[in-house]
Design a protein around this nucleic acid. Structure first.
Lengths: 190, 190
DNA sequence: GCCGGCATTTGACATATATCAAATAATTAT
DNA sequence: ATAATTATTTGATATATGTCAAATGCCGGC
């Protein structure tokens, strides 16, 4: 679940000026360091934790017919969890895997829900995040629906220039819905 | 913005047992009959109304490079609005067009926000709807990312069997991200 | 009931992308 | 450092889907 929105960041800053909230949050949260290859959530398991990335990169993907299909790349300030699995407590459709050493704040979904109920501003932030995530998905969908492979790659680069340095091509390719070879050729031509 | 979720329907039923809420809602809302070809919201304009479909069909689409690209089909109980435009008051990326005589309840985005603030249960329903919409988009994205045209068509049919009777092929085709001719051939072969 | 305009199907051909295979290049482990 | 492993590039060919064009089918208005 990705969002990154100025207004959300702002609200968070404001919210954290409240000491009661801040204390409750840091009591619920646990800082954790993961390393390359670690799995935050496994496809098929119920999502019990949400991770807020402080630094590092996390990839979301699922395996379908033996193929590894990337659904998202997540960086600092992104919230990593399966929205579907966390809200419905159903098996997660996706796996989240750490791509490089990554520092996160971990919170259990249960405690997250309690905090949301207790602090309306957090509930507000949650709602805005869900909206923002939906809008992000809409954009991604439009890109996938009618842009060519080359256009999709350029759109991705424009939005996340750092991605190419950090993530291997096969993951970027499946994220774009193309094969690794096609992506390599697109890059070669420019 | 689509959702259709059992839990949301249930919450709505419960919420409407509250007479105060019911009265406030029906004061804010206006029943309207639209006919084939009517436009509920035009791409480029700010979304000022939300429509709850009582009966009929509404198509969402956008024009890009002269092409007409369908983003959604909306039926009874769906909520029609541009989430992005309504929440941010920015120009709508999509147009909503009535495909057959359609009865709706219209409410201004402004009044909707007021109702959300006044009745926490409506705020709750809004949040669940946004989550549900995001999850629906995730599924659609996965379908577009790696299924073949034929598979995508079959998935659509499985989910909305009535669609083929009500909507012309060119719209279904662009919804699936393929051309009308390709869709016609898929149907011919079965 | 007939005409005119859309919607759909069908055909021939073009193109983007996939697949399979091999050759380099870059990382990682020893 | 060197070998081993993994990632990327490149090539030849196959395939799905797009494009353009024509034929057929369908429906609403006169």
């Amino acid at each position: 679940m990705k969002h990154q929105e100025a207004i959300i960041a702002e609200l968070l800053t404001t919210a954290f000026q409240d000491e009661t909230l801040r204390n409750a949050y840091y009591e619920a949260v646990q800082q954790k360091q993961f390393k390359k290859g670690d799995i935050l959530l496994q496809q098929g398991q119920v999502c019990r934790y949400s991770y807020s990335i402080l630094s590092g990169v996390v990839r979301g993907y699922y395996i379908k017919d033996g193929r590894d299909i990337t659904t998202s790349f997540n960086f600092a300030d992104d919230m990593v969890m399966s929205l579907e699995s966390a809200t419905r407590q159903t098996p997660s459709p996706e796996t989240f895997e750490v791509l490089e050493d990554t520092l996160v704040e971990e919170i259990s979904v249960e405690k997250l829900m309690v905090l949301r109920e207790r602090f309306p501003v957090l509930e507000k932030i949650w709602t805005l995040s869900a909206e923002s995530y939906a809008i992000w998905l809409e954009e991604r969908l439009a890109s996938l629906q009618f842009a060519t492979a080359k256009e999709r790659y350029e759109q991705l680069l424009a939005r996340y220039p750092e991605i190419v340095r950090k993530v291997q091509l096969s993951h970027i390719a499946s994220y774009l819905g193309i094969t690794l070879e096609t992506l390599s050729r697109i890059r070669a031509k420019g």
